[in-house]
Amino acid sequence: MSLNKAASINIGDELAPRVKQIAQRQIDAYSGVRPKSIHTDVEWAQKKGFSAPLAQGLMSTAYVSQMMVDLLGEGFVRGGKINVAFIKPVLAGDTLTMHGVVKSKAAESDKTRVTVEFWCESQRGEKTLVGTASGLAA
């Protein structure tokens, strides 16, 4: 396994934010279209009190993964971890901005585990996800 160098990653480093515009078609592709689903049935979502269908929270874990693969490459694909809480719903049509800041570096066997604190913010200024992800560096 070829790992990125821990020495090139510093505590406090900010990852380049990633912006995601959540289209209904993407939610449909992620969750699978079915009736009476708050994710893919507009009328049903509205009946349940939402202005639009909800994206599954899990979709945001994929954005975390994307940023971690960018940061650590193989050290995230094999040995990566995600630990997040979904704190506000994400609606179809929302624009999310993912933020990450390197929180710690710790020895793990002969490698270094790099942990990043993540949060995701909607265009309403609400945090929708908070948590951490980590992976291995040399």
Binding site: S37, I38, K48, Q56, G57, L58, T61, F76, V77, R78, G79, G80, K81, I82, N83, V84, A85, F86
Partner: peptide, 15 residues
């Protein structure tokens, strides 16, 4: 029934 997904932890062991 639809319900809040509150937390998720994952560890990626093999590709």
């Amino acid at each position: 029934p639809a319900g809040l997904h509150a937390k998720m932890q994952m560890e990626f062991v093999e590709p």
